[in-house]
């Protein structure tokens, strides 16, 4: 009952996804004076409401691309646009869920979820949205717990609620399930899909798990080794919920692993 009203509450703030345009973006880091290129001429156009997985070898620059999309860093060249508007700095319409939950240990679960609304100065009138987001991830009974009292999966759920409470137009997921055990991972993959379907935000998921990418996303972008370049743009036209054993997905998976240079292991 409570959950139902909570959902109605969340759905009362429909957050349709935004389009994302990445145009010829290149980026590099300065390490001890030497320039280390991480992104090379990456162009990508994401439709509103799409679920795009970015797949590539570890350390190839996927996460850097996410930071640029979030507005945390500025690209050396090229532009990024959210619904035609140029991305220059962070905005709560593009929220990141990191690999580590990075909950603030000095805040209770509720206060952690309330962070975005508090930072934007609208918490007083919008407290119900925090409750609704906690209901959404099934952690209402832990509202007064401190992060150190949570399991890894619960902490990541709180991080997800902290992102969703802002009704993001683009949800940016930087390997959010990477550190969870495999059972929790499968459960949370299903939860992610159902949240995405219900709320309609555009989703960008960085992962290095081909199976995860195929189970979750409409589109899988395969990146080359550093500096990252788009190697392949694969549409995954399968209805949800998807089955892990689906031969079509297995075929795609083989194809993707081949692109990543892992065909020898198959």
């Amino acid at each position: 009952m409570v959950a139902a009203t909570a959902l109605a509450e969340i759905d009362a703030h429909p957050a349709a996804g935004a389009a994302l345009d990445i145009e010829q973006v290149s980026h590099a880091f300065d390490i001890d004076g030497a320039e280390l290129p991480v992104l090379s001429d990456v162009s990508l156009s994401v439709e509103p409401g799409e679920f795009v997985a970015l797949l590539g070898p570890s350390g190839c620059g996927k996460s850097t691309l996410l930071r640029l999309v979030a507005g945390l860093d500025k690209p050396r060249s090229g532009t990024l646009r959210e619904d035609e508007a140029r991305i220059t700095r962070p905005h709560p319409s593009r929220v990141v869920v990191f690999q580590d939950p990075t909950l603030f240990p000095w805040r209770t679960v509720w206060d952690n979820v309330a962070l975005g609304l508090e930072a934007q100065g609208i918490l007083k009138s919008q407290r119900h949205r925090v409750d609704a987001a906690l209901d959404l991830v099934g952690l209402s009974s832990f509202r007064n717990a401190y992060p150190h009292q949570l399991s890894g999966g619960m902490a990541q759920r709180v991080a997800l609620a902290r992102a969703l409470v802002n009704d993001p137009k683009i949800l940016i997921l930087d390997e959010p399930l990477g550190k969870l055990d495999s059972l929790t991972r499968i459960t949370m993959q299903a939860e992610l899909v159902s949240l995405w379907q219900r709320k309609g935000f555009t989703t960008l998921l960085v992962t290095h798990d081909a199976e995860e990418a195929l189970v979750l996303a409409n589109r899988v972008i395969v990146f080359s080794d550093r500096p990252a370049r788009v190697k392949a743009d694969i549409r995954v036209d399968r209805p949800y919920p998807r089955h892990r054993g689906d031969p079509y997905l297995a075929d795609l998976r083989r194809q993707i692993l081949g692109l990543l240079g892992l065909d020898a292991t198959w």
């Binding site: 930071r67 979030a70 507005g71 945390l72 962070p90 905005h91 709560p92 593009r94 929220v95 990141v96 990191f98 580590d100 990075t102 603030f104 962070l115 975005g116 508090e118 930072a119 934007q120 902290r162 802002n166």
Partner: peptide, 22 residues
């Protein structure tokens, strides 16, 4: 940790929030 600032910034935090609340 910079991660705390990143989280707060993506959630719309201004510098004063970063100092006082992070």
């Amino acid at each position: 940790s910079n991660a705390y600032y990143d989280v707060a910034r993506t959630l719309g935090a201004k510098p004063s929030f970063l100092v006082l609340k992070v």
